[in-house]
Write a protein that binds this DNA or RNA. Structure first.
Lengths: 163, 163
DNA sequence: ATTTCACGAAACATTAATTGTTACGAGAAA
DNA sequence: TTTCTCGTAACAATTAATGTTTCGTGAAAT
């Protein structure tokens, strides 16, 4: 079964937005994520409803974070993504009339619920600020000199194009 | 994202096989699971490779459990299903060149790995014998009198058809 | 022997979910 | 008034999963 990478993708996007300081367009984000601008808008529209990001039209418009990094947890983002499925497995049917099915569901549900609870608990403990801090540490470790250079984020990002 | 219910389904099937005593045909199992006999064969073929079930052709043939219930854990079955994905979410890319991505992956992977480990640990502790025992307790609780009746397993199962 | 029953396996079809794309509208700045 | 950007709906493409058909093989019943 294929894994949903929207949470991972959104985190990537939000951290880049935090670094940018200025609004980032759907086009720019789409290129970073190697996807389509409309897909970016679709996902960020959900975050906007939860007031995690703001969008502005017109010249100089685009997407910005509208809350402090340290106030946004992974759980907030998970909620803003509309609580996507966490586990790839589930029971065949709920509301079974079959006693075998009931016994099976009961055993599996205990395991599934505990795993979900663990994940959500973790999500609550991680803030965007922590991820950002981790990112900056990695930059230090890679010998970033302190002021703007090419390829701050990656060897592939070409957003620091012609200057 | 849709959940994979093969584990749940296989458990259902195996417990019914355990109750039956005699070989069960793919057709009979398919009707129970409201699916196609070929689908049943596909799934059980994997279990056969791991020597959890045996199949026999011809009259009186079908599928039987070939190990004792108490020796089969959910983890054995999970392995026999070829270790299906446990979590519905994953990282956008591994092997990132982007430091933001690295920071994100690192944080998420910790949570994901812990949740997976929890699930697998649980799977190791549960045997088919326990599920079977749970099933029998549920039968008692429903007032099963002790000898064969109609609808042992469910109000829907029509395998105890004309007698 | 022949028929019937059952699995084995490959090829193909269908379905459902996700993702990508196009097109057009509306607001804001240059 | 032109350009930039998001908003939205409709549509297309892709992919994974599931279901179906068909024919082959072995085993038991007749």
């Amino acid at each position: 079964m294929k894994r949903d990478s929207r949470l991972s993708g959104v985190l990537h996007v939000l951290l880049h937005m935090a670094e940018a300081g200025t609004p980032m367009t759907s086009d720019a984000l789409a290129k970073m994520m190697k996807t389509n601008p409309v897909v970016i808008r679709r996902v960020l529209a959900g975050l906007r409803e939860h007031e995690l990001v703001c969008s502005e039209k017109g010249h100089g418009g685009g997407w910005t974070l509208c809350r402090e990094l340290q106030t946004i947890t992974l759980h907030d983002i998970y909620l803003a993504l509309n609580e996507p499925t966490l586990l790839a497995m589930g029971n065949r049917t709920e509301a079974p009339g079959c006693l075998v099915e009931e016994a099976v569901n009961s055993a599996l549900n205990q395991a599934f619920q505990d795993a979900e609870a663990l994940l959500l608990a973790r999500f609550r403990t991680v803030t965007l600020a922590q991820l950002s801090s981790d990112f900056h540490q990695r930059m230090q470790a890679r010998g970033f000199s302190g002021i703007h250079e090419h390829s701050i984020f990656s060897d592939n990002d070409t957003n620091s194009s012609e200057e």
